[in-house]
């Protein structure tokens, strides 16, 4: 398989953990809350999902438990950041550290074990195309994630719920004045974000690379956070950003097969370098951030 068709075929699967987590965080940030704990929430979801599949519980139960664990950590975040109005940056870091600690504690005796992933489903006709055919052979979670992307895009674009969430994020005091329960809506958004991060971790550890290794999330939660900024809080742009990072993270595999004379460490660091560069390019355009940014992001709200 050539490098290009390899990247096209694998890009969507590689992008899925980024995309799931970033979509969740998009909803959270649109509601005006910044949850930096994604990396740890993903790690906990990953290890729990791995353990369920390892013991024969199946992928559906695994994803369910991962989402639930994400909601639980999100509730810890919500209790501190929304209930007690603590500094959201500090709380996000705390929840992240807790999640990562829990994941390595729980996964201690499963280190380096492997499981089998799930089969890929081909779209008839399209999957037979030359070069791009691999794009249409994906597992069920990838297809569902694409559907979720479309659903979240439509929610913000057309639905009343999307409007209300944006209002809560833009101006919580005004939203409260016209009768919306700001804190409760934000809590729901935070719980949704937690569930999505849990699913992202589950996909990483039970489908994309079906194994458990401590630290295997490897910064993907942080890149998801950066993706929300790259996408300037717009679903479509976040989707393309996730695809870009999916492709970048495949570069090291391509380099190995094509025998590029590049140190493997440089390729491992590539997603992080790209993150820093792209972040600088996007955020230096202050007008872009001003138009699409969330006005009350990260500010504690209390009556």
């Amino acid at each position: 398989m050539s490098g290009l068709s390899f990247i096209l075929a694998g890009m969507l699967a590689a992008a899925t953990p980024f995309l799931l987590a970033a979509l969740g965080e998009l909803v959270v940030e649109r509601a005006g809350v910044l949850n930096l704990g994604i990396e740890g929430i993903m790690a906990l979801g990953a290890v729990l999902a791995f353990i369920v599949v390892y013991h024969g519980g199946g992928h559906v139960a695994a994803f369910g438990l991962a989402a639930l664990s994400g909601v639980v950590l999100a509730l810890v975040f919500g209790w501190l950041a929304l209930g007690l109005r603590a500094n959201q940056v500090a709380v996000g870091l705390a929840v992240g550290i807790l999640g990562q600690g829990l994941s390595s504690l729980i996964g201690n005796s499963y280190e380096s074990l492997t499981i089998t992933g799930i089969p890929k489903l081909a779209l008839p006709g399209l999957s037979a195309l030359p070069v791009v055919g691999g794009l249409f052979v994906q597992d069920a979670v990838v297809w569902l994630t694409l559907a979720a992307t479309a659903a979240i895009w439509a929610m913000f674009r057309f639905s009343r719920l999307g409007l209300i969430l944006r209002a809560v994020g833009e101006n919580p005091h005004a939203a409260r004045a016209i009768g919306y329960p700001v804190i409760r809506l934000r809590l729901w958004a935070v719980m949704f974000g937690g569930a999505m991060s849990g699913l992202a971790g589950a996909y990483a550890a039970t489908v994309y690379t079906p194994l458990w290794a401590d630290g295997m999330i490897a910064g993907r939660g942080w890149i998801a956070l950066a993706l929300v900024v790259f996408g300037t809080w717009l679903t479509g742009r976040i989707f393309f950003g996730a695809l870009l990072f999916g492709a970048v993270s495949l570069a090291s595999l391509v380099a190995q097969t094509e025998n590029w004379a590049v140190p493997s460490q440089l390729l491992s660091a590539l997603p992080y370098i790209v993150t820093i560069v792209v972040l600088g390019i996007i955020t230096s355009n202050k007008r872009l951030l001003k138009v699409n940014g969330v006005a009350s992001l990260g500010e504690p709200f209390g009556p």
Partner: peptide
């Protein structure tokens, strides 16, 4: 520099720099 000149959030950039540092050490 990223924060002052490019308006980029230092939380993300400092964390990414840590992940890069680990790879430099490995190299």
């Amino acid at each position: 520099f990223w924060r002052v000149k490019l308006n980029a959030n230092e939380i993300l950039v400092t964390l990414m720099m840590s992940l890069i540092a680990a790879q430099v050490l490995n190299y």
